[in-house]
Nucleic acid binder design. Sequence first.
RNA 1: GCCACCUUAGCUCAGUUGGUUAGAGCACCUGUUUUGUAAACAGGAUGUCGUCGGUUCGAAUCCGACAGGUGGCUCCA
Length: 615
Amino acid sequence: MSHNDTNDLQPMRHSLAHIMANAVQHLWPAAKFGVGPVVEHGFYYDIDIPEVSLSNEDFERIEAEMHNIIKANEPFERLTMSIGDAVTWAEDNDQPYKLELLHDLQRAGTTVAKDLDAEELGLVSEGDSKVSEVSFYRNGDFTDLCRGPHVESTGKVGAFKLMRVSGAYWRGNDNGPQMQRIYGVAFATPKEVRQHLDMLEEAKKRDHRKIGQELDLFTFSPLVGSGLPLFTPRGTVLREELTNFAESLRKASGFQRVSIPHITKIDLYKTSGHWDKFGDELFLVKSQETSDEFALKPMNCPHHNQIYASQPRSYRDLPVKYFETTTVYRDEKTGELGGLSRVRSISQDDSHAYCRQDQLEEVVAGLVTDVKTVYGTLGLGLRARLSFRDQSDKYLGEQNLWEQAQSIIHDLAEKNELEYFVAEGEAAFYGPKIDFMATDALGREHQVATVQLDFVQPERFELDYVAEDGSRQRPVMVHCALLGSIERFLSVYIEHTAGKFPVWLAPEQIRIITVNQEAATVAFAAELLEKATSLGLRVSVDNDNESVGKKIRNAEVWKVPYTVVIGQKEIESSELTPRIRGDMAVLDSPKSYTAQEFLQTVANETKMRVTKSSL
RNA sequence: GCCACCUUAGCUCAGUUGGUUAGAGCACCUGUUUUGUAAACAGGAUGUCGUCGGUUCGAAUCCGACAGGUGGCUCCA
């Protein structure tokens, strides 16, 4: 979508939000309106209808009423009034949410609604300070506090469809009242709406939860609990191959594997400061023996810090680099869980580097290179968000350390030719970070890898090293996960590939299909299986009493990269003609191989981690 | 945690306004067939209708609680 399209669509979508609110008001005159902005593919409006909860069945009625308003082709008129008059209007029309917004404006000159700046709310803010006048838009019998712009008249709004209704807290405050948010998609033409719905359909087909079940990758059990995925043998192959890959990069970058228990006394988090901040998300564990209180680890860094702290460190020892693939546990609120995207047992390929200030650049550069290698190999697009501090005083650590670190990060982004953008105010309180976003085959972005500098934990844990001049110095800590949460990474990657994994990741790489069940065929299959297995390949034999067509179909359904049919012909010629999964057909490869050639080719592909599909 | 919706066989789904022994396709099992690149034929088995409680002569169907799921909100070290 070009920027022009977006600009043209904005007034249309926003006008539709008004028309929808108008329709709701016709159907439920007691409705109280919140805000109704434009979002990525359409619009929504937050509405409070006392005693009524909307469901999808109501959409038809609302849409029908919207079409009436559109057919009437009422002009949108802009009017302005003083803020005092606007307050009177809100009171007269019994619109408490609008009134609240206006009161905020009167008092503070701004509203504090998250994601909704003053502009969205209809302010005519000439300067930047006090607001004295606000604008309204009127169409037919509906008037709304609004900045605009709108289309000329209700007839000019293009095509739309109401999608869903959900709860939404008034101004994002979970202690405040909850509104009903009605979402719609809108485009200039019905065809574009159709295309958008098709895209959603495709996304639904690729849903990792669906594919996870179809390809037997993972499962959940109510007895185990929500947010606690169980990985099957096939799913475990994926996890293992991915973590082996990430770990091989770690080792090459000089990280040493460490290993820690999954629980700790909570004192560890009282020292780190996490107890105060995230105490309510810890799973607590009781000892029947001692009075100590334990928790399942929600992160690995405090444990790793204790390994660093176990010995005096010299400037010569630095950087000290630890890595570990391990699971952390966070007691996420149940409503926040979903598939593998958000779980309560989170596997991380975590690493911590402790370095001198003058080593920061080298350490961070190595990590950025590894991130690029991972996502390049996997065929995912990559974009970096440089999360820096803003001018507020919520950040800990010395100002000059921040400045040095941020300029190192900025330079590295340039040198590595990363696609990046700077986000001021997105830094963690303890240091700046680089957050990496992967772009999948459907163009959606997902937060994945992260590199975070930490000036605070070394302080809290009093980590130090002896410098050249004999003084004690604080190291800087660098956290990094390449895959991030392996569960979330899998959810992204499964949807990216739609389950068509490259050979090196495929749980089943080769399926051998027998034409018949005669002794010679079975023996040939067994021999092939043994050869392949000894090369470390993941192979299976389908010797079922089914037609060849049926067995081919099954191999396709399971998205097996290579299928070889064996029968009399293959036994006599000693040549195989592998059937290659459609997405990865290779043009320059021969059609037939000897068994040895074929297996060796697949083994090499696995070893090289080839992703040849053009997804 | 909050709002809305959902839960029938391993999977995908039927099941009329509450009315006898709850159905289909795929998968599964047994036979027949010995198959040549996306579905051979025939037969068979399969359910505490998520769980618990209530209303009713009678509940898969109505009500409540709980569990699990979906879409959002909020949150995400």
